[in-house]
């Protein structure tokens, strides 16, 4: 951890949140988002990655009235205001689903599985949802 920085007396660590589940069918996507928002108060170096069905969390035009659950998808657009700006989506996951970044509701960086693996290896903490 040679690249740790000191910030107002605290150590800044690299946190990665790995999102792998489609939204609404299970609670994982919402739980992850809530943890990210709470942890944002601690000013850490946060990356959010979306792989496998996790890419569906970022789909535009989600309308949940018909299944009577909260539509939390607009909250991804608030992440920037919480200084969470590193959002990564895996290319292989998009391709397998016939999706492109045009389908997504926030700007993201697309990376290959190999690049994502490297990014994962650089983290201090990886939280999987």
């Amino acid at each position: 951890m040679s690249d740790e920085m000191m910030d107002e007396g605290g150590v800044v660590k690299k946190f990665m949140y790995v999102n792998r589940k489609a939204p609404h069918g299970t609670i994982y996507a919402l739980e992850s988002l809530e943890v990210v928002l709470i942890a944002a108060a601690f000013d850490q170096d946060v990356s959010l990655v979306f792989v496998d069905d996790g890419v569906y969390q970022l789909m535009k035009e989600q309308k949940t009235d018909g299944i009577e659950v909260k539509n939390f998808s607009p909250t991804y657009r608030a992440l920037e205001m919480y200084d969470i700006e590193k959002l990564y989506v895996e290319k292989e996951s998009l391709d397998a689903r016939g999706l492109t970044t045009d389908d997504l509701l926030v700007p993201v960086e697309v990376m290959s599985a190999a690049e994502m693996a490297d990014l994962m290896a650089q983290q201090d903490v990886v939280l999987s949802f």
């Binding site: 928002l37 108060a41 909260k70 939390f72 607009p74 909250t75």
Partner: peptide, 14 residues
């Protein structure tokens, strides 16, 4: 707009 009540830091900034 965002379906979330902002944290105070975010509210102040916004």
């Amino acid at each position: 707009e965002y379906q979330i009540a902002p944290a105070v830091r975010v509210l102040t900034k916004a």
